[in-house]
């Protein structure tokens, strides 16, 4: 009964909310093209600092950020500071989880996994690892990047956990990866500050748009992010699994 009232209440509010929000945003029709005063035009044409009208795949060189994936260029270059914060958020929640659970090192009692899973895991684990690595090394060229790549690496470890009830990750080593990746990210930023005058400035030549070795610090950072995210999520997962279950 109570839930019905809440339902009616929320429905009524939804109507109000949709009416209200329709003043600010058109709910049913979409633009045909990007509006000219949006900042995104600058990102797409890579002409925020340089006077450049068009970027051509595999031709344009020395663009202000050489990433073919524009979203990546925003994440890791134009708004890289956000990403540093984002990584920190993940870092912080990993720390939070580990602080909450403490490191008992003991495994929760788990069911023994089946033969198929155990066998398949051994095959799939390296594939996942490789795919994850591929995702973050090609983040500046193709969809993907550090975050999905890292998540995939973490997934591969989760798979190991599922497959082997005795599997334990060396949390200390994971932490080392986590910490040093983060430190390196900041150090890259500071190097940018020292050499280019801006924190996180792209101080490496950006190369040709579309090449693997291009776009300056972007792949570098994405690799770091990939490692860091992978390490963090793995650490979160293993914390959950290692936490002693008190009956």
């Amino acid at each position: 009964m109570k839930k019905i009232f809440i339902g009616i209440f929320v429905i009524a509010f939804s109507v109000v909310f949709l009416l209200a929000i329709s003043n600010s945003v058109d709910l049913f029709t979409y633009n045909d093209s990007l509006s000219s005063d949006s900042v995104s035009n600058g990102y797409i044409n890579k002409n925020v600092t340089k006077n450049q009208s068009e970027v051509i795949f595999n031709e344009t060189t020395d663009a202000e950020t050489g990433s073919a994936n524009i979203v990546t260029s925003i994440i890791v270059n134009y708004r890289s500071f956000d990403t540093l914060g984002e990584v920190t958020v993940l870092f912080l929640s990993a720390i939070g989880v580990s602080l909450l659970f403490g490191s008992t090192g003991k495994l929760a009692e788990r069911k023994k996994s089946g033969f198929i899973l155990r066998t398949a895991a051994r095959i799939i684990f390296p594939m996942l690892l490789v795919t994850g690595t591929y995702l973050f090394t090609h983040g500046h060229l193709t969809p993907g990047g550090g975050f999905p790549g890292g998540a995939m690496i973490a997934a591969s470890f989760l798979l190991l956990y599922l497959a082997d009830e005795k599997f334990v990750t060396a949390i200390e080593k994971i932490k080392l990866v986590e910490g040093s990746a983060g430190t390196l990210y900041v150090l890259i930023g500071i190097t940018g500050l020292v050499t280019g005058g801006y924190f996180l400035a792209n101080f490496i030549p950006t190369g040709t748009v579309g090449q693997l070795i291009s776009s300056g610090i972007i792949p570098l950072i994405y690799v770091l992010i990939g490692l860091k995210v992978g390490a963090e999520i793995t650490s979160v997962v293993s914390r959950y699994l290692q936490e002693e279950v008190t009956s």
Binding site: L176, G179, G182, T183, V186, F199
Partner: peptide
């Protein structure tokens, strides 16, 4: 005296203290 250091140095130290 770049204000960005106010944010970055604590972060750096936070990452470092995971290692050390």
């Amino acid at each position: 005296n770049n204000p960005v250091l106010l944010i970055v140095i604590p972060l750096l130290l936070a990452f470092l203290s995971v290692i050390i």
